[in-house]
Nucleic acid binder design. Sequence first.
DNA 1: TATTACTTTATAATTCTTATAATTAGTGTA
DNA 2: TACACTAATTATAAGAATTATAAAGTAATA
Lengths: 149, 149
Amino acid sequence: MAVSEHMLQEAVDKLKSSGVRITPQRHAVLEFLLNAETHPTADDIYKALEGKFPNMSVATVYNNLRVFREIGLVRELTYGDSSSRFDCNTSKHYHIICETCGKIVDFHYPSLDEVESLAEQITGFDVSHHRMEVYGVCQECKKEKNQIV
Amino acid sequence: MAVSEHMLQEAVDKLKSSGVRITPQRHAVLEFLLNAETHPTADDIYKALEGKFPNMSVATVYNNLRVFREIGLVRELTYGDSSSRFDCNTSKHYHIICETCGKIVDFHYPSLDEVESLAEQITGFDVSHHRMEVYGVCQECKKEKNQIV
DNA sequence: TATTACTTTATAATTCTTATAATTAGTGTA
DNA sequence: TACACTAATTATAAGAATTATAAAGTAATA
């Protein structure tokens, strides 16, 4: 129970007010996501909940993630070669990704409103949001590299 | 021949100096990418070159795109639900994407070196680069929306 | 020209995600 | 609480994008 019950309750309320039923599976996926330190894939979630719900289908995980995303409880992060990762976007933040081990670390920075407004002026789009990721090599992988050399 | 022969030659030289053979298929993929106004998918490229190379395999397109990417001639852009798109990253720029029709438009902005150096300080990563996309609705789709209403 | 290593081709396999249909189970109301 | 309505879950299959494999072809080099 790393995360406050409050946040979970808030999320459940948001689902209810959107007419979404609270099933045990759905509740478990939501709880897992809120407590996740990492940014899990659908399969991570599936594997984590297999013990509690031996009959659960992968489709259920995907269905629920889609519902959460549509309501705005969850952000879907898509990167190069692997599967999507899911993140509870409670606070605005960016991600920095290790090119060696794939680790994703949160990283706060004042939101780039300036970029959005400039893009709007240049392109004539109605801007809704933006995404940004920084790539590099994390400290652990740097150490390993040095040891090999 | 929208793109200067110079750029193509430069790219070919870069491949040669990396020990990569210049085959007709490889040359064609490269040329197509350099001339592309859009940001094509692997399948776009495959379809475009089918006429010239009736026996070409999709795997060849993927193989060559991987080679180009590894050498740094091409950037792979991954978005939500569809396939990767490929972009010759000759000049640093960002993309703005229409949430309605999926169109991708280039968009120049002073590179955010500040973000990179801050991220480096906070996280201890060795930063190599970053990506950013702005999302919104393009002018054409805005017009259509208004007409429907 | 012969050899070697790299490429292409054709095909199969993998992986991630979505669709389908039947069954199960929440939720509001009497 | 029981009922009925509808949504959600399950199991399975299908789909799409990408990668792996092995055989055949081809460029580069001596």
